[in-house]
Each structure stands twice: as structure tokens, then as C-alpha cells.
Nucleic acid binder design. Structure first.
Lengths: 191, 191
DNA sequence: CGAGTTGGTTGCACTCAGTGCAACGTGAGC
DNA sequence: GCTCACGTTGCACTGAGTGCAACCAACTCG
């Protein structure tokens, strides 16, 4: 009746999660999204098909759901953000720090997106970041929910644009540069 | 061997298309997305299941694919856009004119999105507008593809934010106001 | 240490989305 | 009228996603 999951259980769980995601990324980057079935991924991860769906609601989710550590890191960055220079500036800093922390999965994921049909998948799959940012901006601008949401959506647009413009052959820091450039452009304004 | 579809054929085709979309919007707004099957929609439209998929690649597409006339109208607006005051200003004008032309489907679609799980669907389903805008900005800023894509993604973010912030009980012009406000905010810059 | 519970895993069966293929029927060109 | 193009349809198939019941190892409590 433990309220908090016990270390060993938790470890099992995370291991399965990581095994499935690793298998999914490997197989899909090798064969393409449609040529890989959930059964393939489950088998490659040494796990049953049913267990796959215990961890991920969707095949696309297995590719794009954030590692719990990363999600936690983002929450932490947002919580610790210095908003003295304004919300947008703070968000810029958070996003840059966040992409810096993402060394492994990012290039692999980027390589998947070259295929045009996967665009729909990866767009929906990035909702995690957007939602985290959105609740943060809503808390920062409690008296102007419209602007709060607009800021969050725009930040997501910046990340998306940088992500798509980034050549995965380049190092991740190049991606960070694009993110910075995007934030600066939007910060200055298009008018 | 007519290279161009013949009037009667074309009419048949458009009728089926419209019947399916109308049935899909009606049924889903009534029962919710998951409680409606493709067979339900096809039957309600007086069409076979297979014909449904001849017109729409996806159940979500039946709800969000733009009417050919609307898609054409957007292309026309973009082609005729006055860019003398800058790309962003022109895009603002185009989007406002575009939402003005969309009287029927918009409120119905907006009502569907209240349900949180449909968000993923309608986000991917709005790619049409984004892609049209994207190719236009790419042509407008041939020497800066990054900014071009950023402008397009940001415009899509503005539309998305306004769409979500819009209370469908309010008239469509209220939606247009939100779009204008979003464009102005981003135009001014967040910094 | 033993009994009971919790929670991750698994197999099974089911619904439904989406696709390929072959056939049918009607409008259009010759 | 003959023929071809093309929208429509039925059929069969793969694969995603879900509900349910069972299993088993880890944890808890007495």
C-alpha cells in the first residue's frame, strides 16, 4: 500500500520505458515510421506489445515523449527563471538552457523529421513543452491570458522553426543559436 | 480522356466531399470525436465507407480539411497581397480577410476543440493554412529562409491562439479582433 | 518469517482506422 | 454506338489502440 512507488519498481518501470523509446528511435530512424510496427518495437525492446501501450499511448509518443528527467528539468528551469528582464527574455533563457541539456535525443529526432509525412506526428508530439510553457506564462501574466497564451504559442513556433531549420549534421549548439536568433527576431518584432 | 475533370463529374465529386464533411461536423459536434466512426459518417453522408477515404485521408481530415473554395480564396488573397508596408503587415491583412470569408465552418470547428483530446487533431489539421502561408513567405523573403519560416510559423501561432481564445458564442468578427490583436502584439515585439 | 497487497507485465480478444485491389456504372470524347 | 476516364463500391487485409483477467515479483504489515 505504498503511496510512493518503491525504488525497485520505479527502476523496472523506467528501464522498460527507456528500452522501448530507444528501440523505437533506432528502428524508425533506420526503416522509417510506417515500416515499423508496434510489435517490432516491443520485440526489439524485449517487452510485450501490451507493455508498449502501458508506457506510451501512441506509436508517435514512443518517439517524442520526453524522458522524465528532461521534463522535470524543464519544470525546474521554468520555476527558477529570472523574470526581471521580462517574460520573453526569461523564456529565451529557459529554452536555451533546455536545449543545451538535451544532447542525446535531439539529433536522432531531428533526423526523423526530414520525411514530410512525419511532420504531423512530431508537431503534435511536441505538445509537452508547449503545455509546460503555457501554464508557466499563464502564471506569469495572470491578468492577460490572451497574451500569455500568445507568448507560449509563439515560443513554441520559435522552437519548431529552429528545429526544422537545424541541420542535424551540425552540432546541437548550432540549434541553440537558431533558437536564440528566433527569440531575438520575435522579441524585436516583425513590424 | 478529358485532361480536366468534366463539369458533371466535378460536381458529383464536390457534392460527395461536402456531404461527408457536413455529416462529419454534425455527428462529431453532437457525440464527440471518439464516439463517431467513419462508418457512421459515411452512412450519414449517404456514401460508402470506401468513398469516405477516397476524399479524406483521415477521420480528422474530414473535419478540418478546407473547402476547396476557401483554399483557393486563401491562395488568391496571398497572391494579391500588398506587401508595400512589409511582409508582416501584409500577412495580417490576408489573415483578417481570410477569417472574414470563413463564416460557416469556423464556429462549428471551434466548438469541437473545447474537448482537450481533440487539440492534437485540430493542430495537425490546420497545416493547410500554415503550408500555404509558408510557401508565400518563402517567396517573399528568398534570401532569408529562416525568417521566412519563422514568420509563417508565428502567424500560425497567432491564428491558433486567437482561435483558442475565441468564445464561439461570440460572432466571428470577435475572432477577427483577436487575430488583429495577436498580429499587433507580435509585430510590436515581446522584448 | 508468513500472509496479503500492490503494481508492472502479459496474453487474448475486440473495435476501428486506413489501404490495395478488382469490379461496376455512368458521363465524355471519337 | 464504342471506348475510355473516373467516381463509386465491396472485400479482404494490416496494424493501432483498448478492456479485461491473470500472473508474478516486490513491498508491507503483523
Amino acid at each position: 500500500m505504498a503511496a510512493v512507488p518503491t525504488p525497485v519498481r520505479e527502476q523496472q518501470r523506467r528501464d522498460s520505458w527507456a528500452a522501448v523509446q530507444a528501440a523505437a528511435l533506432a528502428l524508425v530512424s533506420e526503416r522509417g515510421f510506417d515500416a515499423v510496427t508496434v510489435d517490432d518495437v516491443a520485440a526489439a525492446a524485449g517487452v510485450s506489445r501490451r507493455t508498449f501501450f502501458n508506457h506510451f499511448p501512441t506509436k508517435a509518443a514512443a518517439l517524442f515523449d520526453p524522458h522524465p528527467d528532461d521534463a522535470e528539468a524543464l519544470q525546474q528551469l521554468l520555476a527558477d527563471a529570472d523574470t526581471s528582464a521580462g517574460v520573453w527574455s526569461a523564456l529565451r533563457r529557459v529554452c536555451l538552457d533546455f536545449v543545451d541539456a538535451q544532447t542525446v535525443a535531439l539529433p536522432v529526432r531531428r533526423r526523423l523529421v526530414g520525411d514530410p509525412e512525419l511532420d504531423a506526428y512530431h508537431r503534435t508530439a511536441h505538445l509537452h513543452v508547449g503545455q509546460a510553457v503555457e501554464s508557466w506564462t499563464a502564471a506569469q501574466l495572470p491578468d492577460d491570458p490572451f497574451t500569455a497564451q500568445l507568448v507560449a504559442e509563439t515560443a513554441a513556433a520559435v522552437l519548431m522553426t529552429a528545429f526544422l531549420a537545424w541541420d542535424p549534421a551540425d552540432p546541437p549548439q548550432r540549434f541553440a543559436e537558431l533558437v536564440a536568433r528566433g527569440f531575438d527576431l520575435v522579441g524585436t518584432g516583425f513590424a
